[in-house]
Amino acid sequence: MPKNKDADNTSAEIKLNNNLKSYRPIEGPTNLQLNMGLWWVEHRAFLRRILIGLLILASISFWGYGIYGFAEYYYRGLPEEEQISRLLTAVPAISHDFIKRLAADDFLVGNVNILPGGGGDNSDLAVKIQNPNADWYATFDYFFVIGQNTTETKREFLLPKEEKYLAEFLYDGPKPANARVEIANINWSRVNVREFDSLYQGNVEQFVKERANIEAAGAELLPGSSGQDPLNTLNFIAENNSPFNYWEVDFLIILQSGSRLAGINKYKVEQLKSGESKKISIIWPGRISGSQIKIIPSVNIFDKSNYIPFELGSGQLK
């Protein structure tokens, strides 16, 4: 009999446990929540000690890193700062003269020449200007001032080391006794020939010489028939000896009597291609004196829009 009673008790406990596991309360916490709450109550003190230990470890790490950084700055940073300060004080100060030496030098400008114009009572104004810089290119505006009057503003350029004349043709105001030239809006650009072609290796002189290799050959001035305003004829050949095609090339025509400027004119040749020669004939009215003819070509080789692209045929590399 006792054995049967124990068996009944065991069976009852198993049944009770199964009922508890399958119990789903309608209200209140579930068994899982009760178990978690019980685990938290039993282990709360232990978890608190772990958290305190982690905080202490983090605090020790931060304080240790701070002390190490301060010590490193004291023993290494301060001496390095003192050394840098000594080096900075040893470097010479950048003076105004130093900056000026790095900048472009001003134009060299001569006196204004007042010349007889192409017939009538008008006048031509001309002044020699030079860019003394070997590696600076400039664009600028200019106009002439005659008493209270000014001429129209024009845009011009100067290549490195280039010399030319600025001119105002057929000024029809009262014949001036003197005049001056005003130059404004100067835009200096240091020449970087590698921007155009790396073959020049920074040699500005070679770059300018090759690309501005344009000549005026066979210049001949034929005086016109005698009269009040004779029509003279100037003939020359414009030759493009450079390997590039240009949309525009200016030719400044100078007449000299000894060292004195006696007359000036200007002619623009359009679409002058590489290796091309063009015969130019200009009618130059007025009484012209002067035994020496000088024709100065001027082409803006730094204006990329002035280059005519080469026309390549089929089968050629492009």
Rank of each mutant, 00 (worst) to 15 (best):
157 F>D: 05
159 L>T: 05
143 F>P: 08
155 R>V: 12
121 D>H: 10
137 Y>G: 00
134 A>S: 15
117 G>P: 02
124 D>K: 02
157 F>E: 03
131 N>Y: 05
130 Q>K: 15
129 I>L: 06
151 T>F: 04
150 T>C: 10
157 F>C: 09
127 V>W: 07
131 N>L: 05
131 N>W: 04
134 A>Q: 15
155 R>H: 14
137 Y>E: 01
151 T>I: 06
149 N>I: 14
122 N>H: 13
131 N>H: 03
138 A>E: 05
144 F>V: 00
147 G>T: 07
140 F>D: 02
119 G>K: 00
149 N>H: 15
155 R>Y: 12
135 D>A: 12
121 D>S: 12
135 D>Q: 10
132 P>S: 02
156 E>N: 10
139 T>H: 10
151 T>G: 06
139 T>F: 10
154 K>E: 15
119 G>C: 06
159 L>I: 04
153 T>Y: 08
129 I>V: 08
123 S>E: 14
141 D>P: 11
128 K>T: 13
158 L>I: 05
150 T>R: 11
151 T>A: 08
150 T>E: 08
128 K>Q: 14
152 E>G: 14
143 F>I: 08
123 S>G: 12
127 V>N: 04
140 F>P: 06
152 E>F: 13
139 T>K: 14
158 L>N: 07
131 N>F: 01
134 A>M: 15
139 T>S: 11
121 D>F: 10
144 F>A: 02
149 N>W: 14
153 T>L: 09
121 D>E: 12
138 A>V: 04
134 A>K: 15
128 K>S: 14
122 N>S: 13
117 G>R: 01
135 D>V: 11
123 S>V: 13
119 G>N: 03
137 Y>T: 03
153 T>S: 11
117 G>N: 04
133 N>Q: 07
129 I>S: 05
126 A>C: 04
128 K>F: 14
130 Q>G: 13
126 A>Q: 03
157 F>T: 03
146 I>C: 03
132 P>K: 00
122 N>G: 12
131 N>T: 08
146 I>S: 03
120 G>D: 07
121 D>K: 11
145 V>I: 11
150 T>A: 10
133 N>E: 01
154 K>M: 13
138 A>L: 02
127 V>E: 01
144 F>Q: 00
132 P>I: 02
119 G>I: 01
155 R>W: 12
